[in-house]
């Protein structure tokens, strides 16, 4: 049931990317999609009453939360930061070149 939350969040992001005209808003949409996916990974790895996956010689490896998606998501957050910065930089360049953030006014691809 809780996974539906991810789906809602993801759809929200896609709607934002597809419908919004402002580039900044589109970037925000992309970030929302990213977080929806991250959340989904974390939720998949969650275990009822599990404990933190800390390896030590005293405690036996029992009832631990899967650590792999957590590591993955940590990396993904960092990469997401970099892509967001790149997107913002490109958005600024676009604004310098065309003088607008409205994506429907930049129609160089029109046939």
């Amino acid at each position: 049931m809780i996974y539906l939350l991810c789906l809602v969040l993801f759809s929200l992001g896609v709607y934002c990317v597809l419908r919004k005209r402002n580039i900044i808003k589109i970037i925000v949409g992309i970030i929302i999609i990213e977080y929806a996916v991250n959340l989904f990974f974390i939720l998949v790895a969650y275990r009822e009453k599990g404990r933190a996956p800390i390896l030590s010689s005293q405690t036996p490896i029992l009832n631990m939360v899967d650590p792999l998606p957590q590591a993955l998501v940590l990396t993904a957050i960092v990469i997401g930061l970099a892509t967001t910065a790149l997107l913002a930089a490109i958005a600024m360049r676009i604004y310098e070149k065309y003088g607008t953030f409205d994506i429907t006014k930049i129609r160089e691809l029109r046939g």
């Binding site: 990317v17 597809l18 994506i103 429907t104 930049i106 129609r107 160089e108 691809l109 029109r110 046939g111």
Partner: peptide, 13 residues
């Protein structure tokens, strides 16, 4: 085909 190519990025998406 040209009618479909309106140059708006969200349409392509």
């Amino acid at each position: 085909l040209r009618y479909l190519h309106n140059g708006v990025l969200p349409t392509y998406l």
